[in-house]
Design a protein around this nucleic acid. Sequence first.
RNA 1: GCCCGAGUGGCGGAAUGGCAGACGCACCGCACUCAAAAUGCGGCGUUCUUUGAACGUGUGAGUUCGACUCUCACCUUGGGCACCA
Length: 825
Amino acid sequence: MENRYDFRTIENRWQNYWRNNGFYQVTEDETKPKYYSLEMFPYPSGNLHMGHVRNYAIGDVVARFKSMNGFNVLHPMGWDSFGLPAENAAILHNIPPAKWTSSNIEIMQEQLKTLGLSYDWKREFTTSDPGYYKFTQWMFLKLYEHNLAYRRSAGVNWCPSCHTVLANEQVVEGACERCEALVEKKQLEQWFFRITDYAARLLDDLDSLTGWPEKVVTMQKNWIGRSEGCQFNMAIENSSETISLYTTRPDTVFGATYLVLAPEHPLVPILCAGKDIEKEVHDFINKMEFMSDVTRTSTDTEKEGIFTGTYAINPMNGEKIPIWIANYVLMDYGTGAIMAVPAHDERDLEFAQKYNLPVKIVIQAGEACEKESDITEAYDGDGIMVNSADFNGLTVEEGKKAVIKYMEDENIGTATINYRLRDWLISRQRYWGAPIPIVYCDKCGTVPVPYEDLPVILPEDVAFKPSGESPLNDVEEFIKTNCPNCGGQAKRETDTMDTFVCSSWYFTRFASPHTSDLPFNKEAADYWMPVDQYIGGVEHAILHLMYARFFTKFLYDIDMLSSTEPFTNLLTQGMVLKDGAKMSKSKGNVVSPEDIIGQYGADTARLFILFASPPIRDLEWSDQGVEGSYRFLNRVWRLINEYANDIKNLDIPENIDDLDGATKELHFKTHFTIKKVTDDLEERFNFNTAISAIMELFNTLNSYKDLPKQNLALVKEAIESLLILLTPFCPHICEELWEIIGNRESITLQAWPKYEAEALIQDEVEVVLQVNGKVRDRIKVPTNSPDEGLRQIALENSRIKELTKGKKIVKIIVVPDKLINVVAK
RNA sequence: GCCCGAGUGGCGGAAUGGCAGACGCACCGCACUCAAAAUGCGGCGUUCUUUGAACGUGUGAGUUCGACUCUCACCUUGGGCACCA
């Protein structure tokens, strides 16, 4: 017999068989429970890497396992194909992005198919296809219709050397990632989605996501960043204007010694108008405007500010405090204005010390009040209010409530809740994305493209200039259009949408990917949604998952979906490492999936990747480990082939009495393994321990093989169980061996085995004997021995007697069928 | 700075209050072979006075009959957020 099995022929054969017989193609079936297993769809970069293989192998195990457990499983795949790399390739190699993308998809599709994944390929789609982005545009129009899409001027990252807009990810430490020029800020009219309207729901519903890793939930909570406080007004001296402030510490309002406005605050020019300081302030604002957000909002940036020459009146005590503007106050959080309490806020203290502003203690921490001149650190802990008029003596918590109540009673302010979450800027001054379906008409203003005119087609034959500017600006046929409203001349929006918009709803499209009048068919989506298991990298923990949740809630609100959350369970897989570092071209530590599959086959690649580490942890690549997985499959191959003829026509008996020791052990191991693997897949996603359990069953079987007297019917039971349990991991070899031992119907159609509780009952168990918690002996006793009997056995044991000689036995702890601990002094 | 994880043999990892190191890799020995590879069988935490014992899960304390597991403090390390008032 051959030493090594011919994985090439086998894997090819079964992949063709599955495809030709429509395996894994599903339709809605009300008679079966549904299961939607989804892996994050890839960007078609041109090559499958190990991270992909890991992601899809994990998903395939879930899909196949659920399918064998009687679920109607939807397991689709598609391409998230809009994005920058295609454009870069176009500039670099002069290939149109569409061509580059589709040839990449072709390559990666082939690579994916060699992995033997149980995808319903009939549902595949590509987001850069007009048939798909038509509905990305549809989503935009719906949001616009519901006042959740709007346009305003906002700063973008601008590289002065490349003359182009950069995404935040392309800004590395304040500089352009390509040319390293310092990034500037530029004001442009941009489209936003009003995700902040959903902040409260996005936050509250996180508590219902019990199937998500706690880490991701926490990250989202922090990102949404809810804070409770109050908003109140301060009058300005010699002016009719008032300034609205937001604070989370109303209890410290008596300690406010100055007030700060964000440089962009609309009141700033009014306050300074005609004053000596006007030019200086103007220069400062200009400087801030050109500083990139990354630099501006870094903690390392030194605080800087200017006194405006005007004063505000603290409504609580009538005190006059100076109004400053400073870089550390941001216009887009709260009201863009703060009261500064240097005694109890670190940032305010730093600023106050730099500009010699007064410090006033209003929260007393210890027994005695610290002297203001001694302060080196702001105190933001708990304490008692002091120097605060009628409020003296209240704790921080009491004080917050009391001050807010006073402000509300006196009409000074109200309790408010603020979120850090910002509206989602979706405009990209880029070519390779879904065009924003908006038209600008001189007469009618901003006009949405009518639904029936979708898609707004992205012209494909365009010239890329080395300047890096979007070529859409030069395509006159695209820009020039007629206003849908008045029919007059109009201009199209030339910005495209952030690719995250495409991926915020794709999971719903898989429910009915061929629907052409709507993004998806509601009945089909109601059947399949939500996704039961979503699998992907933790790098999407915030943005993609937040946007997808936002879209799902919006689609629910407009009655397109019946679920309010897209993903019931989320698994964030770890990275694939080599020599302790993430595989990357620049480090030269990339292992190509193609090479591994070519050399060992898909089953080995899948087995190794699933065996080496639990899915959520990082995985250290090991060439020798792959070799080991390959060896295991070969061992399985040889053993089962040896037995094939002997067990082909046997029936597995119902009656299994009177088994000899080794056979009983084999029978036990078979059912123990069924239970272990089922539990590991069902409850814990511990694929690595599931595989080691299968290996143990194999080892038991392998030792049994050498016995002179064997129960072949139970060998068959063990082999068939082993093959079925191994199928989700290594489907090809299991199909082949399943056929070799005489079965006709595909193993992937077999029902998942159930363990017999009876087989797990053993006559004898090994019990550990301890003295003071240390193992001193091991004995075999009948299963379910009563505690009293075990106690006696322990006391009569010679080792125990020896070790407790001359000591007083204080107590004996018995854990049935496990352990006896004799406590002696 | 704040918020999450993680730390166990030479390596990947297992055990979530009850036998630490399952399973695999590497390594060592034996068999087969002229030889090697492949394959099979056996061994494999450290130390010692080696038929036995002591020590051992980042460090230090604590809870418990019993701690990798729980509690507190610290160290190292990975990740996320970071002037959000």
